[in-house]
Design a binder for these strands. Structure first.
Length: 814
RNA sequence: GCGGAUGUGGUGGAAUUGGUAGACACGCCAGACUUAGGAUCUGGUGCCUAACGGUGUGGAGGUUCGAGUCCUCUCAUCCGCACCA
C-alpha cells in the first residue's frame, strides 16, 4: 500500500473530532501547559504565515500532551476591524456576514491541517457575548479613572476615516493603509497606560531570557522613561501684561538640570497654549503668525524633515536661579506631546538648541568643561554655575534638583515617551464604547444589565462618515442615570482592545462564558501562557497592550497574573524569491493547494524543516518534494517492522550497522527534549530522524527496525501527526504515542573510539583505540599513525581530548 | 543619529558551546533499474590542484596546543525607534 495522504488525513481528522482528543480537562491541579499561537484576523483565507504559526504551536501542544500535561491549545478569531467594512463598501456585503462566513471557511482550512485545537473554546471577538464583558471592563476602568474622555490633537487617517493610536503610526503613516497621518483636534477616549509605565518597564526584567531581547528592547525604548527636573518659568511682568494676565508662566522638563545655568532662551511648541493665544489674539506680526500656523499644520514627521525654524514671541521669562530675563521663542522642533510642549534651551550642551541658536544668532553660554568645541554633550565639571561651579555634572544633576525642591522652584520628575492609548475609532465594525451623553448628567456609562451595547445590523456602509453616527435611531437613547433623552456614543473600540484579553477568555470554561468574562481560578491556573507564538510586527502594539490589560484586569480583581505571556517566540516571515509573500506581488503559495497536492503532513514537515522558526523561511518547491519523499519512505518502511511493542535487544550481539542505527535513533530521542522544550530547532530534530532512518536502512534487523519506528513515530507525531498516528495504530496500537520514552544508554557505549590526530593544529589522520586505552597508549598510537608528518619535527606539547582527538604541537628540529 | 540582530558551499541550513567545519535536505553530476513515476536506487559534490597537498565560516588583527565559536577593530545587510529636551 502506497502512501495516500488524503485518505489518512481525513480519517484521523475525523477520529480526533469524535474522540474530542484535544479538549483540556477541567482540573486545575494537574500540571499544565498553555500553548498559544496568535489568533488570526478572518481575512478570508489562510496564508503560509498562518500555517507556520500554527504548525509551531501545534507541535508544542502535541508534545506536551504526550508528556501527560493538561494542555490548553485554543484558537479564535480577531474579528472586528476595517477590512470587514472595506469588503462591505466594495462588495456590498454586511461586515457581520462577511466576517462569519470567512471564519467558517478558514476553520475548515485549519481543520485540514490537522491542528490540535480545542473546539469548544473557539470564539470570535465580534461575538456579542465577548463584547458584553469587554464593555463591562471598560466601564470599570472608567470608574477607576483609567479611562477618560478628552479633546486633544490626534492622529487622523483620512482613508480609514478614523483616529489612530501612537503605536499605529509608522513613519508618519497609517499602519494599515500606509497613508500619511494628519493631525486633528477631536474628542476621544483614552486608557491611562502611562500610569502603568513603570510596572510595564520593570516587569520586562522578568521576561529576559524568555522573550526575544529585541522585543524587550523595543518595548523599553517605546516606554522611553527619562528622569529629570520639572520647573516653572515665570513670565516677566511685561510679558504677563502682554498676555492679558491669562498666563503667569509655564512648566518645562529637562534631563539635564546640570546645564540649567547655560540656558539662553526658551522655546515653545507651536501648539503650546501661549503660542496659540498670541497667534489668535493677533499679538504677533501677521506674517510670523501665518508661519507659526503653517508649522502647526505639519505632522511631526514633516517637521522632523524641515530645517530648524522658529520665531521670537516677544515675551520673556525669568531664569529661576539667576533671575536673568530669558527670551521666549516658538520652534518647530519642540514637540507638543512631550514635556509640556516647552523646553529650556542650552545651546552649549545640546545639539538641537545649538543649531537653532546658531541660525538665529542667540547667545551660547558654556557651563560644563570638556570637549574642544560646542556643542559639548559629554560629562565634565560645571563652570559659571554659581554655587554649583566645580561640581561634577552627574553630581550636579542631583544637587540642582535638590536645591530647586528646597527652594520650592521645581521638582525631580519622570517623563515617558509613551502616550496614553487612544481607543476611540470612528468606525462601525467594532465594539461600541458603552457610554451615553446626557445634557444634564454628562458622560454616563451604560447600566451593566443593559450590556452588551450591540451594533445595529441595519446600517448603510458607504465609507462616508461613521455609520453609527448616520443611523437614524440607534444613537438616540435614554440616560441610564436620569432617564431623559440622551445620545449614545458612536465611537467604537480599537480592535487591539479585544486582543488584549483574549488569552484570559480561552482559559475560562465556555460553560461560564455568558456569566463571566474571566474565571479567576481558571485564569490563575492556566496563565501565563507558557509559550506564545506570533509575528514580530506585534512587538509593541499588541504585546504592550496585552501586558497593560493584564495588569489592569489584575487590579480590577479578575485574576492574579502579572505577565500574560511567560515565553514568547517570534516567528520569521515566509518569503518567496526573497520577498514577503503577498497577493499584490503575486508570489504566494496557497496552503489549500499545497495540502491537496502533498497533504498536511508534508506542508507541516517542510515548514518546520526548512528553517528554524525564528528565522525567515524561503519557500522552495523542490524542497517540499523532499519533505514528501521522506514521509513516503517512512511510510514504506512499516514493512520492516517485525514486532508490535518495544523489543528487548541484546546490543552486543548486533552488527556494526545495527548498532549505529540504534545509536542514531537514540540520539534523535535525546535531542527531542531540548528541541521541544527550549530551542524549537525542529529542523535539527527532523534531520536527526532522517539520519536515523538512513542508518536503519543500512541494516536489516527486525527488532532494530521495530524499536526505531517505535521511537521515531513518537518523536515525529507532533510534526506530522496523521501519518505517524496511522502507522502507530497499525504497528503498535498507538501505545508508542502515549509513552514517555527513555534513552537506552547502552547504545552509546563504543567498542572502539575514533580519535582524530592533529599535528601542528591540522587534522592529519585518524586512529581507532579501545575505550580502555590509557593516555600513553593513545599518544603512542597517534605518533605511530602520524609518523610521516612528525619527521624532522620536535613535539613540544601533547594534548588528548577524551573521546575526541589528539593534538601534537610541533616545531622543526634545529 | 540611537537601539537590536545577522553574515558559514550553487541554495536552505548543521556544528554536543573552544575540539574532525559543511550534519540533514534541496540542487547539480555520473551510473543502475524500470510496470516512464511526484519514480526509485547507488555513488559523487566547499574552493584551488593532474596529484602530493594547499586553502576555507564577510574582512583585518589578537588570545590559545586548537577559533565559525572568545577579545579588539572593521565592512556589509536587515529590522525597530527617530528633534523625546
Amino acid at each position: 500500500m502506497s502512501y495516500k495522504p488524503s485518505e489518512i488525513e481525513a480519517k484521523w481528522q475525523k477520529i480526533w473530532e469524535e474522540e474530542q482528543a484535544f479538549e483540556p480537562s477541567d482540573s486545575t491541579t494537574q500540571k499544565k501547559k498553555y500553548i498559544l499561537s496568535m489568533f488570526p484576523f478572518p481575512s478570508g483565507r489562510l496564508h503560509m504565515g498562518h500555517v507556520r504559526n500554527y504548525a509551531i504551536g501545534d507541535a508544542l501542544a502535541r508534545y506536551y500532551r504526550k508528556q501527560d500535561f493538561n494542555v490548553l491549545h485554543p484558537i479564535g478569531w480577531d474579528a472586528f476591524g476595517m477590512p470587514a467594512e472595506n469588503a462591505a463598501i466594495k462588495h456590498g456585503r454586511h461586515p457581520k456576514e462577511w466576517t462569519y462566513s470567512n471564519i467558517d471557511y478558514m476553520r475548515k482550512e485549519l481543520n485540514t491541517l490537522g491542528l490540535s485545537f480545542s473546539k469548544t473554546r473557539e470564539f470570535a471577538t465580534c461575538d456579542e457575548v465577548y463584547t458584553k464583558h469587554e464593555q463591562k471592563f471598560i466601564i470599570e476602568m472608567y470608574e477607576k479613572g483609567l479611562l477618560y474622555r478628552e479633546s486633544t490633537t490626534v492622529n487622523w487617517c483620512e482613508t480609514c476615516h478614523t483616529v489612530l493610536a501612537n503605536e499605529q503610526v509608522e513613519e508618519g503613516c497609517c499602519w494599515r493603509c500606509d497613508n500619511p497621518v494628519e493631525l486633528k483636534e477631536m474628542p476621544g477616549y483614552y486608557l491611562d497606560i502611562i500610569s502603568y509605565a513603570d510596572e510595564l518597564l520593570d516587569d520586562l526584567t522578568q521576561l529576559e531570557g524568555k522573550w526575544p531581547s529585541q522585543v524587550i528592547t523595543m518595548q523599553r525604548n517605546w516606554i522611553g522613561k527619562s528622569q529629570g527636573l520639572e520647573f516653572k518659568f515665570e513670565l516677566t511682568k511685561e510679558s504677563k501684561a502682554k498676555l492679558d494676565g491669562k498666563f503667569d508662566g509655564y512648566e518645562v522638563f529637562t534631563t539635564r538640570p546640570d546645564t540649567i545655568y547655560g540656558v539662553t532662551y526658551s522655546a515653545l511648541a507651536p501648539e503650546h497654549p501661549i503660542t496659540k493665544y498670541l497667534v489668535e489674539k493677533g499679538l504677533l506680526d501677521a506674517e510670523v503668525a501665518e508661519k507659526i500656523k503653517a508649522i502647526a499644520n505639519m505632522t511631526e514627521v514633516e517637521r522632523a524633515q524641515q530645517d530648524k525654524e522658529g520665531y521670537p514671541l516677544g515675551i520673556s521669562v525669568i531664569h529661576p536661579l539667576t533671575g536673568e530675563e530669558i527670551p521666549v521663542w516658538t520652534a518647530n522642533f519642540v514637540l507638543a506631546s512631550y514635556g509640556g510642549g516647552a523646553v529650556m534651551a542650552v545651546p552649549a550642551h545640546d545639539e538641537r538648541d545649538f543649531e537653532f541658536a546658531t541660525k538665529y544668532k542667540l547667545p551660547i553660554k558654556r557651563v560644563i568643561e570638556g570637549g574642544d568645541e560646542l556643542p559639548y554633550t559629554g560629562s565634565g565639571t560645571l563652570i559659571d554655575s554659581d554655587r554649583f561651579s566645580c561640581v561634577e555634572n552627574e553630581e550636579a544633576k542631583i544637587a540642582i534638583i535638590n536645591y530647586m525642591e528646597e527652594e520650592g522652584k521645581g521638582k525631580g520628575t519622570t517623563n515617558y515617551k509613551l502616550r496614553n492609548w487612544g481607543v476611540s475609532r470612528q468606525r462601525y465594525w467594532g465594539a461600541p464604547i458603552p457610554f451615553v451623553h446626557c445634557d444634564d448628567c454628562g458622560l454616563v456609562p451604560e447600566k451593566t444589565e443593559n450590556l452588551p451595547v450591540a451594533l445595529p445590523e441595519d446600517v448603510e456602509i458607504t465609507g462616508e462618515g461613521n455609520p453609527l453616527e448616520n443611523h437614524p435611531t440607534w444613537k438616540h437613547c435614554k440616560c441610564p442615570k436620569c432617564g431623559k433623552d440622551a445620545l449614545r456614543e458612536t465611537d467604537t473600540l480599537d480592535t487591539f482592545v479585544q486582543s488584549s484579553w483574549y488569552q484570559f477568555r480561552y482559559a475560562t470554561n465556555p460553560k461560564k462564558w455568558d456569566e463571566v468574562g474571566i474565571d479567576k481560578e481558571e485564569a490563575n491556573y492556566w496563565l501565563g501562557v507558557d509559550q506564545y507564538i506570533g509575528g514580530i510586527e506585534h512587538a509593541i502594539l499588541h504585546l504592550l497592550y496585552a501586558r497593560f490589560f493584564t495588569k489592569v484586569l489584575r487590579d480590577l480583581g479578575y485574576h492574579d497574573i502579572d505577565e500574560p505571556f511567560t515565553r514568547l517566540l517570534t516567528q520569521g516571515m515566509v518569503l518567496m524569491d526573497g520577498a514577503k509573500m503577498s497577493k499584490s506581488k503575486g508570489n504566494t503559495v496557497d496552503p489549500d493547494a499545497l495540502v491537496e497536492k502533498y497533504g498536511a503532513d508534508t506542508a507541516r514537515l517542510f515548514i518546520l524543516f526548512a528553517a528554524p522558526p525564528q528565522k525567515e523561511l524561503e519557500w522552495n518547491d523542490s524542497a517540499v518534494d523532499g519533505a514528501f519523499r521522506f514521509i513516503k519512505k517512512l511510510y514504506d518502511r512499516k514493512s520492516k517492522v517485525t514486532g508490535s511493542a518495544l523489543p528487548n535487544i541484546d546490543h552486543s550481539s548486533l552488527s556494526k550497522e545495527s548498532k549505529l542505527a540504534r545509536q542514531k535513533v537514540y540520539e534523535a530521542l535525546q535531542k527531542s527534549k531540548d528541541v521541544y522544550e527550549s530551542t524549537f530547532a525542529f529542523n535539527t530534530l527532523i534531520a536527526a530522524c532522517m539520519e536515523a532512518l538512513n542508518a536503519l536502512d543500512k541494516q536489516d534487523n527486525g527488532d532494530v527496525w521495530t524499536e526505531g519506528m517505535y521511537v521515531m513515530l513518537n518523536l515525529l507525531e507532533p510534526i506530522i501527526p496523521h501519518v505517524t498516528t496511522e502507522l502507530s495504530e497499525e504497528l503498535f496500537n498507538r501505545a508508542n504515542l502515549k509513552a514517555v520514552l527513555e534513552v537506552k544508554e547502552e547504545v552509546f557505549v563504543q567498542e572502539s573510539i575514533l580519535y582524530v590526530v592533529m599535528i601542528g593544529g591540522k587534522k592529519r589522520t585518524e586512529i581507532e583505540v579501545s575505550p580502555s586505552a590509557s593516555q600513553e597508549e593513545i599518544l603512542a598510537a597517534a605518533k605511530e599513525a602520524g609518523e610521516k608528518w612528525l619527521n624532522g619535527m620536535q613535539i613540544v606539547k601533547e594534548i588528548v581530548v577524551p573521546n575526541k582527538l589528539v593534538n601534537l604541537a610541533v616545531k622543526p628540529v634545529n
